[in-house]
Write a protein that binds this DNA or RNA. Structure first.
Lengths: 140, 140
DNA sequence: CGTACCCCCGTACTCAAGTACGGAGTCAAG
DNA sequence: CTTGACTCCGTACTTGAGTACGGGGGTACG
């Protein structure tokens, strides 16, 4: 692994991160990405950590976090004083665990569906809704 | 538990589901909810299963599924022939597991952060990004 | 009987998260 | 030293997911 991923122009950076240039700029305006300072009148350069940061944003988005929430997660990444960090982290942990609970249910139901399709034929349905309903009655 | 949740007007339905009336109508236009037929010139009535369906939609949205994806999940719920169902379910299972993998990492990192804040003081940061990066190298 | 609160349906507006566009500057290759 | 590709930055447009608005109709109660 060489550090091909250093000294990237914004175009190469965007390509490496799998988004387009405008998205990068958009994230910079939102302060999700640092805007590296540029050699006066020149062009900015980006590196591997920037790429990873964008990929993190994208992953978190897939999990239903909004950019505002992601910006909080990034605050944790970037480091804060323990008192605030731990408060924030605990909240986020709550969100994460709630999502996990739902996803685990879904996984179970879908797995069962696939299995039963392998053994039986014909029509099947899949109690996704019911599986989540029970959850509400159950203590966490 | 009485079935207070039967014979609801759209207003009561929306309230029970925790969304507003326009959202219900919007979902109906998108065919995420069945539009019960109404006594000609009268008003439509809704029941518990409709409420559960909306709550399912909301849960799935929190997990980053789009309404189009949710409509596929609902197809599974509503029952289809095995051949298609199982294909679809397998794809969805892939999505679900990918999300799970990321969430589990996040949970681990956040938990660790909270723990280490309880024992140490000062500044902390939290390798959220790094934890997801490793994932890409690892076989699933 | 009227008036107040729903329902129905259609159109129009909003907000988050991008995407697209365009003029001006920069830079590397020929 | 020009040309073509790329950067910079600002403004404007688009899309998904709702929200709001408004006219026309029940009905229920005071």
């Amino acid at each position: 692994m060489q550090n091909i991923l250093e000294n990237l122009t914004i175009g190469a950076f965007a390509k490496a991160a799998g988004v387009n240039v405008e998205t990068i700029r958009f994230y910079q305006r939102k302060n999700l990405l640092p805007e590296p300072d540029k050699p006066y009148g020149g062009i900015r350069r980006y590196g591997e950590s920037d790429v990873a940061r964008v990929q993190f944003i994208k992953s978190a988005q897939m999990l239903g976090f909004s950019l505002d929430e992601i910006s909080e997660l990034l605050k944790l990444e970037d480091g804060t004083r323990c008192i605030e960090a731990s408060k924030l982290a605990e909240r986020k942990l709550g969100d994460v665990r709630a999502k996990l609970a739902v996803l685990l249910r879904m996984e179970a139901v879908l797995t069962q569906l696939v299995d039963s399709c392998h053994t039986r034929k014909g029509n099947v349905s899949c109690p996704l809704i019911a599986s989540l309903q029970e959850q509400k009655g159950v203590a966490i």
